[in-house]
């Protein structure tokens, strides 16, 4: 068969033209298939309708506030986790940084530092943890699962030591308290701000592009000249800082800093949010908006079940099932997406 003819008739171009002529229904179907955020958004809407009709007071202002506060901090940590997970790494220590950072802020404030610089100090401490995670993973070549498992325990021990295991109360001025998560609206704004900024960073900046390249094909990216070590390091720092920020915000919201707060619980919720939102643990692919929606879905589930009188035990059962089901769907969908280009 003559080669020229073959080259001028790529079958895929044909199918691309056909794609443009699809009916509306088919297009909606394709949108759901190709947009990872769409399916989780629909799940969130369905859950809201369900609890609104079954649980009285679900959409009351005070309850929506509760729900939002719960989901917001998870969403902030999840945003950082997504960046790390796209690099094909994971940060298990973020929940412990969540507990550590407010203590750094509290002690700095006790020592006479005003609140805003004290918060900055807390975030710098968090960044330091991220640097340690990055250094051990990138330079010493320890898998990040092990690295951050180690720092998880170390930070927990450190926080318990400096706090003597007792909670403390930060006494911020009303202004500081209100800006830094003292009410539901400020919490939501922080979560939305972080989500929008990081999503933009992921899809529209060089950092995001190189993050995807680092996780997608580390060898190939390095051959082209992408500095994958620096990208991983940066994302570990980012994730840690967001863990610290979430901790500070919750400290002002609850107006108590508990050394046992957050921890593995909030870390697993953040990773679950990322995964439910459509980020693949294998790296190279993820969405911050998806993680935000994932955190919302988890928040709605937890809150709705509480209102409906379902016990915490049942909640964990459902959460686990939700993670497994969404992962199975995710994997199937990405296989479908991959096959979509090859339907000759």
């Amino acid at each position: 068969m003559p080669a020229d003819k073959v080259d001028s008739l790529p079958p895929r171009q044909e199918s691309a033209r056909r794609l443009e002529r699809h009916s509306l229904a088919r297009r909606v179907g394709l949108f759901l298939l190709y947009s990872r955020e769409a399916s989780i958004a629909i799940a969130a809407v369905l859950l809201i309708i369900y609890f609104w009709s079954t649980a009285p007071g679900f959409l009351s202002i005070s309850n929506v506030g509760n729900l939002a506060e719960y989901a917001a901090t998870t969403a902030i940590i999840a945003a950082g986790e997504v960046m790390v997970i796209i690099c094909a790494e994971v940060d298990l220590s973020a929940g412990m940084v969540y507990a550590l950072a407010p203590f750094v802020m509290y002690f700095a404030h006790q020592a006479g530092v005003p609140f805003v610089p004290a918060i900055l100090l807390a975030l710098i401490a968090a960044a330091l943890v991220g640097m340690i995670n990055g250094f051990i993973t990138v330079v010493l070549q320890i898998p990040s699962f092990i690295t951050t498992l180690g720092t998880l325990f170390m930070i927990n021990g450190f926080t318990l030591t400096i706090s003597n295991g007792y909670p403390v109360q930060p006494k911020g001025t009303p202004l500081v308290t209100n800006i830094f998560g003292g009410n539901a609206i400020s919490q939501i704004l922080w979560a939305i701000g972080v989500t929008v900024l990081l999503q933009f960073m992921l899809v529209k900046t060089r950092w995001g592009l190189h993050t995807i390249a680092t996780g997608g094909n580390p060898l190939g990216a390095a051959e082209v000249g992408v500095k994958i070590g620096r990208i991983k390091m940066g994302n570990f720092i980012l994730c840690s800082v967001l863990g610290g920020l979430a901790g500070v915000l919750d400290a002002f919201r609850i107006s108590s800093i508990d050394p046992l707060a957050g921890g593995t619980d909030i870390m697993f919720m953040a990773i679950a949010s990322s995964v439910i939102g459509g980020t693949l643990l294998t790296g190279g692919s993820g969405t911050i908006i998806g993680a935000f929606l994932g955190a919302a879905v988890l928040g709605i589930l937890k809150n709705g079940f509480t209102l409906s009188g379902v016990s915490a035990f049942t909640f964990d059962l459902i959460l686990g099932a939700a993670i497994l089901i969404t992962m199975v769907i995710n994997v199937r969908l990405s296989q479908l997406r991959a096959a979509g280009g090859k339907d000759e």
């Binding site: 592009l209 995807i212 390249a213 996780g215 997608g216 051959e223 082209v224 992408v226 190279g284």
Partner: peptide, 15 residues
Amino acid sequence: ALINELSVYRNMFLQ
């Protein structure tokens, strides 16, 4: 050295 998850043009301009 191509990144499967990225579009053609982003691969061509990587780095």
